[in-house]
């Protein structure tokens, strides 16, 4: 199939950037979205142009590197799917696809479609440590965890930190990401000693980075490739408010 791409090109953080139009022929429906961009880049290189910079790593939907706003939807039209797992069979001949980087002040564009997501790392860092004996492996079943909590904690832990939640949020809020991390530790016994201080520090770091506040629009969970549910945000809010009440 033949497609028209409108790709955000920006040579560096200080460049203004613009959408550039590319016509690309003979796209196989079996290609992944990133493979389609690989083909575009091969052709750009052959033509002596600068290839489109985009983040990618595992290409199997688990690393969280790929990050593209495709036609105004983070990770494109497939639900619960990262860009790398989106395939061209969902498009048809003659389609025009607009590809942009995540847009948020805390995610500055490095080049083209690549944004710097180290704000997420700093939120994680603000969470600090958990108090567990790190020496020998613990005895099996020494620490009982209710099945429901284990499942919910695991669901939250599947967050790959891709930033789609921020990209889709009309407020540029990182609440779903932060809430997933807070929930995954907060539901488990190992996470209890620092539960309050962790929630507080991470929420405050999220503000510090310049992310907006949550207005419960649910756009984040709708585009999340891992389907992190909105109730993680309720848990974050509860933990944060409880911790704030305790320590003033």
């Amino acid at each position: 199939m033949n497609l028209t791409l409108k790709v955000w090109r920006q040579s560096g953080p200080d460049d203004e950037g613009r959408l550039v139009r590319y016509e690309i022929e003979d796209v196989s429906p079996d290609m992944s979205f990133l493979e389609m961009l690989d083909v575009l880049n091969e052709r750009l290189i052959l033509a002596g142009d600068d290839p489109v910079a985009f983040d990618h790593d595992c290409r199997e939907g688990i690393c969280g590197m790929c990050s593209m706003m495709i036609d105004g939807v983070a990770h494109g039209p497939q639900k619960n799917t990262t860009t790398c797992q989106l395939h061209m069979r969902h498009y048809k001949d003659g389609d025009t696809i607009v590809i942009e980087p995540w847009r948020a002040r805390p995610f500055p564009v490095v080049k083209d479609l690549v944004v710097d997501r180290s704000a997420f790392d700093r939120i994680i860092q603000a969470g600090g440590f958990i108090s567990v004996p790190a020496g020998s492996a613990p005895d099996a079943h020494a620490m009982p965890v209710p099945k429901v909590d284990a499942d919910d904690a695991f669901d939250a832990a599947t967050c790959i930190g891709c930033g789609a939640c921020v990209a889709a949020c009309p407020n540029g809020s990182a609440s779903l990401f932060t809430a997933a991390k807070i929930t995954h530790l907060g539901l488990l016994p190992q996470g209890q000693p620092e539960r309050g201080s962790r929630a507080r520090a991470m929420v405050e770091q999220m503000d510090e980075e310049g992310f907006g506040g949550c207005t419960n629009t649910g756009e984040c969970t709708a585009v999340c490739p891992k389907g992190i549910p909105l109730d993680t945000i309720a848990r974050m809010n509860a933990d944060y408010l409880r911790a704030s009440r305790k320590s003033g």
Partner: peptide, 11 residues
């Protein structure tokens, strides 16, 4: 919120 997204999406 407005400050968190200074550059809007084109699409």
């Amino acid at each position: 919120a407005a400050n968190a997204r200074p550059v809007k999406y084109a699409a």
